[in-house]
Computed example of a mutant assay.
Amino acid sequence: MRPAAPEDAPALAALHAKAFPPTGRWGADAIRLMLEMPGAFGLHAKGGFVLARVAADEAEILTLAVAPGHRRRGLGGALLAGAMAQAVLRGAAAMFLEVSEANAAARALYAAAGFAEAGRRRRYYPDGADALVLRRDLSPS
């Protein structure tokens, strides 16, 4: 796993396209802009990546993408753990994310990592699914 940089945006967009349906895919320009935001960072591994940002003492997962051929091997959990560790190093005490209520695999990943529902955004996604807002306290240890 290595840090993601703005110049990685085309490769990350290709991974995002494999991991998400057409209406949820992010292009290279969007990913580059995300990585250039203050407080933003990314981690990239073969088959997946995570983008996150830290503002004050809160962190947010912007996206976590794992290509279908690399799923169920622990990559998503490793990317999530790496993002949480980086967030702690950057001063975050809590992490948030949004996940589609319809995405059972992602919800299981986040539940296993200790995330709990903190809110809901009704009909947030293009398919009409609600977004669950999840939160987890972060520990410096």
Results as ranks from 00 to 15, higher is better:
Gly47Arg: 07
Arg121Cys: 11
Arg2Gln: 09
Pro38Ile: 12
Arg107His: 10
Arg32Asp: 10
Ala30Lys: 03
Gly47Val: 02
Ala13Asn: 03
Arg136Trp: 01
His70Phe: 12
Ala5Ile: 11
Gly128Trp: 07
Gly74Val: 01
Ala28Ser: 13
Ala111Val: 11
Phe20Asn: 08
Ala131Cys: 11
Ala116Asn: 00
Gly24Tyr: 10
Val133Asp: 15
Gly76Leu: 06
Ile61Gln: 14
Ala56Glu: 03
Phe49Asn: 01
Pro6Gly: 11
Leu80Thr: 06
Arg121Ala: 04
Gly39Met: 03
Ala59Glu: 02
Glu98Gly: 08
Gly119Val: 15
Asp127Pro: 06
Ala30Tyr: 02
Ala118Val: 12
Leu12Glu: 02
Gly74Trp: 05
Pro126Phe: 01
Glu58Ser: 02
Glu36Thr: 13
Gln86Tyr: 01
Leu64Arg: 02
Leu33Lys: 10
Ala83Pro: 07
Ala129Ile: 05
Ala111Met: 09
Arg2Ile: 03
Val54Gly: 02
Gln86Val: 09
Gly69Tyr: 00
Lys18Leu: 13
Leu62Arg: 09
Ala118Phe: 14
Ala116Tyr: 00
Glu58Thr: 02
His70Pro: 08
Met1Pro: 01
Arg90Pro: 04
Val133Gln: 13
Val66Glu: 00
Glu60Ala: 11
Pro10Gln: 03
Ala52His: 07
Gly69Trp: 06
Ala11Val: 14
